[in-house]
Design a protein around this nucleic acid. Structure first.
Lengths: 204, 204
DNA sequence: CGATGGTTCGACCGCTGGTCTGAAAGAAGG
DNA sequence: CCTTCTTTCAGACCAGCGGTCGAACCATCG
């Protein structure tokens, strides 16, 4: 996480750094991104950069966290407060579809998220993993718990395991969608199919 | 892929290089592996290494392909020739369990596979991706097709999509298993649970 | 004015993957 | 045995990487 001083920097400088970093990371991914290019674009020196961030991973984690938080802010995603099981899954599908549309509308964020998801397990990104989880995991867990209380989600397996499997399915669908030339209607269908598969898999 | 000359090298030299590379890649992953360390361990010069391999990725792809092929050789995995639907899934679960045990018995291979799976989508590993798919994809497609003919697997979605989702679920379970201190009995149970989820998700 | 302490700079470090020149080693032909 | 040609290798070298560090800058305070 960025050093506290970074918050005291002027908004223009902060944005210059974060914008340059987002450009670089979303264009090249973490591994192939270059700090030297970022500081050149941002117009700051190397010393300044490492005065505000501990490491390349630290910077990445900060940029990623901001994007994830933005996704949660732009599309306010409440935990489903459904009345019955069908409702629960319908609401979830709506949220999912909205999220996918948001990602299509902001390809830079999407690229960053994809780079993170495909490499999150690598030890170099554990910091980023932890920061991003802080935003997403509580929501995910709460959703599963609510689903379990409704009887929409099986209770014979730990929520964390169910979340892991569901995320794996979602990621698979996402990579699938990237490789496909997708029409708008197809997106809705694919999301519907995936949520249907999730529902079957996660139901007792 | 390794240059053809590599095959003409003496078995000892070949093994020295491949062993050193496997050690390095499985210990550090592709990104943090060092060609310099590999050649030092293998006792060859940099010129020799790049005389036999085009690049770091080329070497990685070759090592990975050999490990994947070994998995298919050690545990001969026939396409399920089940008589009914229950049989199909039972056989599949058996294969899956055997594969998991094989991976537990050969942690180096497991580490390499995990590194590949978590980073396969990154552009740097596309070569490795293609080589490994050549071994696994035909089997996967055939299995899905057989399952569809049996009525065990839904036919309203393209096999490639179903495979992607199933692999995503499997990978999720795998990462889940790594983080858990696992007893032998638990492995069987978890695999059973996962195959059950797959079955629900992939059934019409 | 001097001193202090938060900021910024860029030369520098060890290391990376990869290239390239030139020498050693073998093979083939005379 | 000598020459010629090709294959095999050694290692100096390159640009670029992430990261460090001492010096310089500059505002504030005494």
């Amino acid at each position: 996480m960025a050093r506290p001083r970074f918050q005291q920097l002027s908004a223009e400088q902060r944005d210059a750094i974060l914008d340059a970093a987002l450009d670089e990371f979303s264009a090249h991914g973490f591994a192939d991104a270059s700090i030297n290019r970022i500081i050149a674009t941002a117009g700051i020196s190397k010393g300044a950069m490492y005065y505000y961030f501990d490491s390349k991973e630290d910077l990445y984690a900060d940029v990623l966290r901001r994007q994830v938080e933005r996704l949660f802010r732009d599309g306010p995603i409440p935990v489903p407060d459904a009345s019955d099981v069908d409702d629960f899954w319908r609401i979830l599908e709506g949220h999912y579809l909205r999220l996918m549309r948001l990602l299509i509308a902001t390809p830079q964020t999407a690229a960053l998220l994809r780079d993170w998801l495909t490499g999150a397990a690598s030890p170099a990104l554990r910091k980023a993993q932890r920061e991003a989880e802080q935003t997403t995991l509580p929501w995910l867990v709460q959703t599963v718990v609510v689903g379990q209380q409704l009887g929409a989600i099986r209770t014979d397996l730990p929520p964390a395991f169910l979340i892991a499997v569901a995320l794996g399915m979602a990621q698979a669908m996402d990579t699938w969608l990237i490789t496909q030339p997708l029409a708008e209607a197809e997106l809705g269908e694919t999301v519907h199919a995936l949520i249907g598969m999730m529902r079957r898999a996660l139901t007792e």
